[in-house]
């Protein structure tokens, strides 16, 4: 029952503006780890086909918020989420909602590359297989090839498809994880500091990649690098001590932040 759409070529979405519809809408989100409150009253809109960057000092709750969006917090014992987060108008904390289906629609790339100890091919084919996306080997090959290609990895690994994914370099591993995520064709991709383990060249590749694939996905990225946020994102949200201090168009946040704390952080005065 694979829905048939076509991929939008990157060129066409160069300027997704303030008008794009909201994909993820968070209202009054509070997160508690046991007694400790990690997020307080967060309201945030994530717009379609945009890159939203989450910035803020360490421990301010960026990862926590990110993990709320695909309910990865469910696996943490003692973690409690209140408030409302919706994906395309659908409450994702609804008791009827299926977590597995949600995570198929909201993919995630982690801080440390975590390829499965399987071959490169099997890493990418993992999601499509689980979700029954390919009827035969030919279709699977097609999905794997396209995903690797879009992750900019196909050329490098074309003759190493059967080698273990863990044998690639760090940057290649992270792109493999991105390929693995986009192979499922999620609507939203969450990235938690995807470049923090990479050197500048690998980082640049990933940033390019993010810019290319946003045509087809909505991306939320956590980063500690102001430059990276400025380079890849259209919108930026600044978190501080579990609060969302301010959110807005990236150029605006970086040039004329409204809040003192934001100003202090982006100019490197505290954090």
């Amino acid at each position: 029952m694979a829905a048939i759409e076509t991929l939008v070529p990157p060129a066409k979405v160069a300027a997704a503006g303030a008008g794009s519809p909201v994909t993820v809408e968070a209202r009054d989100v509070n997160v508690y780890y046991g007694e400790k409150q990690a997020l307080k009253q967060v309201d945030l809109d994530v717009r379609r086909h945009e890159v939203t960057a989450l910035i803020g000092p360490s421990g301010c709750g960026k990862s926590t918020f990110l993990r709320c969006i695909n309910r990865m917090n469910d696996v943490i014992e003692g973690c409690r989420v209140t408030g409302r987060i919706s994906l395309d108008g659908e409450d994702i904390y609804d008791s009827d909602l299926d977590v597995v289906a949600l995570r198929a629609r909201v993919g995630m790339v982690f801080q440390k590359p975590n390829p499965f100890p399987k071959s490169v091919y099997d890493n990418v084919a993992y999601g499509p297989r689980i979700h029954g996306m390919a009827a035969n080997r030919g279709e699977l090959d097609e999905i794997v090839a396209n995903s690797l290609e879009r992750a900019g990895l196909l050329k490098e690994v074309r003759d190493r498809l059967n080698d273990p994914g863990t044998g690639l370099s760090g940057g290649q591993q992270q792109r493999l994880c991105i390929a693995r995520a986009i192979a499922v064709n999620p609507e939203v991709i969450l990235m938690d500091e995807p470049c923090s383990a990479l050197d500048p060249i690998a980082t640049a590749r990933i940033e390019e990649l993010i810019d290319e694939i946003r045509a087809n996905y909505t991306i939320v990225i956590v980063t500690h690098s102001m430059q990276q946020a400025a380079r890849v994102s259209q919108r930026t949200a600044f978190f501080h001590l579990g609060e969302l201090v301010e959110a807005g168009d990236t150029p605006e946040i970086f040039t004329s932040p409204r809040d003192r704390r934001t100003h202090g952080y982006i100019t490197g005065r505290f954090g």
Partner: peptide, 15 residues
């Protein structure tokens, strides 16, 4: 087996 692998799989929508 590192938790990150389980997380990676769960994040792809695996049961």
């Amino acid at each position: 087996v590192p938790q990150s692998l389980r997380d990676g799989s769960a994040a792809l929508g695996a049961t």
